[in-house]
Design a protein around this nucleic acid. Structure first.
Lengths: 240, 240
DNA sequence: GTGGTCAACTGGTTGGACCAGCATTTCTCC
DNA sequence: GGAGAAATGCTGGTCCAACCAGTTGACCAC
């Protein structure tokens, strides 16, 4: 078949995305009351259960606060939402753009990645250090295919983050990898300077194996900073 | 009333917590198939819709992968789950303990907070810098009540993180503040050394106002590191 | 005004039915 | 006997209709 698998998105997923974007976009400001479930169901011509599933997800994302008997209230996502939400913020018509989010994510990646490399040098086992070096070599031998290179590079970093022994870093890494980075289309020349520098990877692996925490941190910070676009910021803070 | 608001947890919330803990605890290993919705409903004596809401949340947390017609599969949370999940990991009977999670969260807080202070010094407006200094003074004048002190301290840090202009940091801050830190009972003497050091807060605010990014980063890193317990790690990496 | 009552919302839960997609089994044809 | 097609029985996805359980606010008696 030529057509690429028409996956019909579930109704509750569509509704969740729609309401999420309304909240993030400011159409539903903090403090406002969400339309009642029955009314939402009628408005979109869907069943109330589908609405409930969507609202339940909004609740889990801490975008709304539901109270039995009372009204469902929209929260201020700047104060309550978690890192997992970052996906979709860009979809909002108001506030930060995709470029802003991308830059923020890459900045955070550099910060957390550097500290993870430091901790990895301090705490990982000799086996893990050897595995990291092996993964770096594996990455170095990976073909010219960009997607493939990206995968082995992420896999290599995952080893380092795991080796840091910090679960918070690992979870944040997950949030960034399959939440934010994919959305951000980093200029190819920037990311190539990071992904293709096989020699730097070898040196970082060596620093970790030699327990040189400071050197590992400095090198990884420099490496990860290469993909951060240097575009000037026009706004201050997170407020529009 | 003396009794504290008998909140009966919703069925789907209980079910979500139960299944989440089973997955995080290893009772439902990655790759295993989740019990079918109808069977879960029968097993717990609840309606299938409640089960569906719980499963939908598991899906959003990237703990399971559901496929129409096929089986719902348990994912490897170490590879897929996001930072928001950190709550509840400690509840698992296998793997990291509350102390481990707490330490990891505090480590991450120090790393991200220091970089946020650095960026804030670089990028925040003069108004924001003044507001940060004012918030520091407000905190300094706050009464001896520990809860109150904690609130003003968090509010002060929120200003700094907002001033950094990095939304990823802001969301991670949210995840840490109302997800992880509360669970972690940091020894009072440690946190007091951080929260009560009014002079350090004033200096940090001054560094930010003076655009001394390096000094702001160094001071905040030192400040935030005070609450990190220095307990030795018995395990390596995140693997048990 | 104060207090209680009640009706009209809200979300929470249930049951049953049916549609749609996947996987295995079974049957047919070569 | 083996390869492919058809049938079957599971899975999740959606809907309808009703009822339970809290909250809110208007109303009325005092």
């Amino acid at each position: 078949m030529a057509e690429g698998h028409i996956r019909r998105e579930a109704v509750s997923d569509q509704l969740f995305a729609l309401l999420r974007d309304r909240i993030l976009g400011g159409a539903l400001p903090p403090g406002a009351a969400l339309t009642a479930e029955r009314d939402l169901a009628a408005e979109f011509g869907v069943n109330r259960h589908a609405v409930r599933e969507a609202v339940k997800r909004l609740q889990q994302a801490r975008l709304v606060e539901v109270s039995h008997g009372g009204r469902t209230q929209v929260l201020d996502w700047r104060r309550t939402a978690g890192l997992d939400l970052a996906v979709g913020i860009a979809a909002a018509d108001t506030g930060p753009t995709v470029q802003d989010i991308a830059r923020d994510a890459l900045e955070m990646r550099a910060c957390v990645g550097a500290d993870a490399a430091r901790l990895c040098a301090l705490r990982c086992s000799a086996d893990t250090a050897a595995e990291i070096a092996a993964a770096a070599e594996r990455h170095a031998r990976t073909g010219p295919d960009l997607t493939e290179l990206d995968e082995t590079y992420v896999a290599w970093w995952r080893l380092i983050v795991e080796g840091s022994g910090n679960i918070a870093y690992l979870l944040a890494f997950n949030s960034l990898v399959d939440g934010l980075i994919p959305v951000a289309d980093v200029p190819a020349d920037l990311s190539a300077g990071e992904i293709l520098d096989v020699e730097a990877h070898r040196r970082l692996a060596a620093h970790i194996a030699a327990r040189e925490a400071g050197a590992a941190e400095a090198l990884s910070r420099e490496l990860l900073s290469r993909s951060v676009p240097a575009a000037p910021r026009t706004r201050e803070g997170v407020r529009p």
